[in-house]
Design a binder for these strands. Structure first.
Length: 170
DNA sequence: GCGGTAAATTATG
DNA sequence: CATAATTTACCGC
């Protein structure tokens, strides 16, 4: 069940299942990914409700405003570890920036930064699940499924510039 | 400080 | 089992 959400940065494509939001695709379609075909469709009521919430949240993001409400997520397509990571990402406060090392450590994997990054890369719901707030330990952006420019732009939007080199702006 | 190589963790073929 | 993914640590320059 797909739908489009228009923001000032472009048209996002969102997908819902009977459990909630399944994926968000950037306007450039960079992070398009394989979704299971056996997803159950949501009821018309839920779909319209979630779409409204998602639409509002997405547009808030694009304007640098913290969304007051988020739709339910259907994380059933991820592995337990990935769900743990994504859930952790949701705990990152607006404008706060973490590192993969810290993320891994919070998950009980002190050396699992790579694994955490891998799970982030598998994140089907960018922006709403703030995978863009996670940087490398050296202050670099490292990478982003939908392209580094998006990651950088999202961080800029919420006023969370690189913590280690914020003085080098301009 | 920068670039290359080795190591660590989870997911996927 | 081997390879890949949004990394980190170490070594030499």
């Amino acid at each position: 069940m797909k739908a489009n959400v228009e923001t000032c940065l472009g048209l996002f494509e969102v997908t819902f299942s009977s459990k909630g939001l399944v994926s968000v695709v950037f306007p450039n379609g960079e992070n398009e990914r394989m979704l299971p075909n056996d997803l159950e469709f949501p009821s018309k009521e839920d779909f319209e409700l979630w779409l409204g919430i998602t639409s509002r949240a997405l547009r808030n993001f694009m304007e640098g405003i913290e969304p007051s409400e988020l739709p339910p997520f259907d994380l059933s397509l991820g592995t337990p570890f990935q769900q743990e990571v994504w859930n952790k990402l949701l705990e990152i406060q607006w404008g706060e920036v973490w590192t993969y090392a810290r993320l891994g450590r919070e998950l009980g994997k002190p050396n699992g930064a790579r694994a955490a990054g891998s799970a982030c890369g598998a994140n089907p719901i960018p922006v709403l699940i703030p995978c863009h707030r996670v940087l490398s330990s050296s202050g670099g952006l490292c990478g982003f499924t939908a392209g580094l420019p998006w990651k950088q732009r999202l961080l800029e939007l919420e006023g969370a510039w690189l913590p280690l080199k914020s003085a080098s702006a301009a």
